[in-house]
Write a protein that binds this DNA or RNA. Sequence first.
DNA 1: TATTGTTATACTCTATAACTATA
DNA 2: TATAGTTATAGAGTATAACAATA
Lengths: 153, 153
Amino acid sequence: MSSSDDTPATLILRSVLLLGRRLRAARPEGPHSLSTIAILATLRRLGPMPAWRLALEEHLQPQSVTRIIAALERDGLISRMRSKTDRREIKLSITPHGRTVLSEDIGARRAWLEKAMNDRLTPEECKRLMEASEIMLKLSDSHIEDEAQSGEE
Amino acid sequence: MSSSDDTPATLILRSVLLLGRRLRAARPEGPHSLSTIAILATLRRLGPMPAWRLALEEHLQPQSVTRIIAALERDGLISRMRSKTDRREIKLSITPHGRTVLSEDIGARRAWLEKAMNDRLTPEECKRLMEASEIMLKLSDSHIEDEAQSGEE
DNA sequence: TATTGTTATACTCTATAACTATA
DNA sequence: TATAGTTATAGAGTATAACAATA
């Protein structure tokens, strides 16, 4: 049987790939990418934090975070404040302007998604998709706590 | 209320972004990216087809497909055959070597995903995730037929 | 003129390696 | 030496514009 890849895993792989493409493309007029907006949303959701913590939350390398926050600061969406106690650390905060931009961006993406859901899914399917989102988050969420437990590879 | 983005849509956005990152990173030793493998899988699943059809299936621009299939042909994973009836068209087929590489790649990614699912999800959650995959596919699937129906932007 | 495909170019996304500054 | 952050570089992923060949 050559169907070794027509498995549930393949279906998950393909669906996340294709839906991800759509969600990235559904950006509003603004110049802000999905990864950028996700970082902004995390800063609003969890409050000010240093870059290394942001890297853990977003499952990114610190260097990748550096690049994104440089753009965010350039555009005035976040502000930096050097820690007094540990002068290596820099706390990142979302600015009022950042909150405005975030709301507009998320609003536009949400509009796209909700329209697509209304057009193509039944209410029952919408509900199951939302439940599945938490499952996917859990699946992609092996940071911090878990890092300590399973140190292999 | 400033919670205009703590909505189900935001959760979906974040979960697809984060899980997508993980699935792309879970590549085996081989030099083939997720997008490349997805195209190979589509050629095996649906049989030989021209590049424009592949672009529709994968929701990519034809130029993006051109780039990917150039790499696939360079590595001997697909073959091209000019159509006799319409000499503009080139039929793309997966080669035996392509089938081998595809199975190995999918196998490795599947192993990662199944381990993650076993480690972090209950059997009930696994089942719901698989059901949700078909829903996500439907959501990202507005090509061909739908294009004709809703012609707006 | 429309369609199939390609080349050229650029921007986003992310990683690894090497570095600086501070602890 | 370890940690927080940055710079440099590269490759993956994808898009738009301009083009060639064929219909």
